[in-house]
Simulated assay, not measured.
Amino acid sequence: MRDEFDSLVPGRPLERPFSRRDFIATSAGAGFALATQPIMAQTAIHTEPAGLQAGRLRLPSALGEVEAYQARPEGAGAVLPVVLVVSEIFGVHEYIADICRRLARQGYLAIAPEIFARQGDPRQLDSVPEILERITARTPDAQVLSDLDACLDWAVQHGGDPTRLGITGFCYGGRITWLYAAHRSDLKAAVAWYGRLEGAVTPNTPRHPLDVVEALQAPVLGLYGGVDTGIPVESVDRMEAALGSAQALAAKASRIVMYDQAPHAFHADYRPSYRKEEAEDGWRRMLEWFRQHGL
């Protein structure tokens, strides 16, 4: 078992590995704790790294180095399907790292970049509004897409199968998942968990998912909550209608699943919003979606 990513592949590792203890220490007293309390220990999921090669690394990109967390089955000899994991506004904390490990247990090379690192560390801020104002609003979509490209390219160079590329993302990352499905022509499938579909146009966010329906190059499975106070059902309905009337084949092949009684972040098992039944069903659907589309 390895959880440091020291000599697995070329790439400069961090001075020390990321761990669950690091996550707790970083969260205590910081803005991230505000969004996660009370943590429901009885539903929190932790995937042990035994049998996996997992940990943090730095890799090159067009905009400078990208820090990321990756996980894959230990000792895998064949090339592996690759899944990008795009975080919420809180960055790559333990929940996102665990998502990577869960995917690794399913046979994937999963990699999650720290997409906000150039703007700052969300975990050091005191409130969600502060994170939105000081970090996410200042993070250009173009920067995020470029860093995701760098992660996929790195993965392909280090054991990933270039013909089997996918992406999934949560909240902020769900929105990015839709955009990335319109950005990367070799992507096979995408799964967006409660990603915002429309919003204000700014220099950093020039387009939203509803704007790129005809540009989709990979089919997207969208998983949404019917009582999500941040994403109105009417917005999801508009996306579903746009997909249904689109000419693009990937848009026509896309699908929306609505969980009528689920709130926002229903998959986030570290938060009170977690809904076990809907989260497990969504995870099953995600894996089926990837396999259906060749991942």
Rank of each mutant, 00 (worst) to 15 (best):
R105I: 04
A262M: 04
A242W: 01
L34C: 08
G294M: 06
V79T: 13
A68P: 02
E4S: 13
E4W: 09
R291L: 07
L243Q: 04
E288S: 14
M239S: 03
R56E: 13
V201N: 04
S254K: 03
R20Y: 12
R175N: 08
A28S: 15
P17Y: 04
L223W: 03
M258L: 13
A246K: 02
T177S: 15
V82H: 10
Y194M: 06
H93A: 11
G120H: 11
L221W: 02
A189N: 04
M239I: 05
A142H: 02
S19K: 05
L165C: 09
D281H: 14
P122Y: 08
G55H: 08
G64I: 05
R105E: 11
A137M: 00
P122V: 09
Q106K: 15
A190I: 00
A44C: 10
T177R: 02
C171R: 02
F266M: 06
E278G: 06
P272H: 09
A28D: 11
R2F: 11
S146M: 05
P272I: 13
F32G: 10
C171I: 06
V92D: 07
T26E: 15
I45Y: 05
S273M: 11
V233W: 04
E234C: 01
Q37E: 15
V128C: 08
A181M: 01
P129M: 13
Q70H: 12
P140C: 03
R275W: 07
E278M: 10
H93E: 14
V227F: 07
D126R: 15
D153H: 05
A62M: 00
A35M: 14
E198P: 01
S61Q: 00
S185K: 08
G222D: 03
R134S: 11
R58T: 14
H93P: 00
T26G: 11
V85E: 09
D149V: 02
P219N: 03
R207I: 00
G120A: 09
S19H: 06
G64E: 05
D6V: 14
S185N: 07
D121E: 15
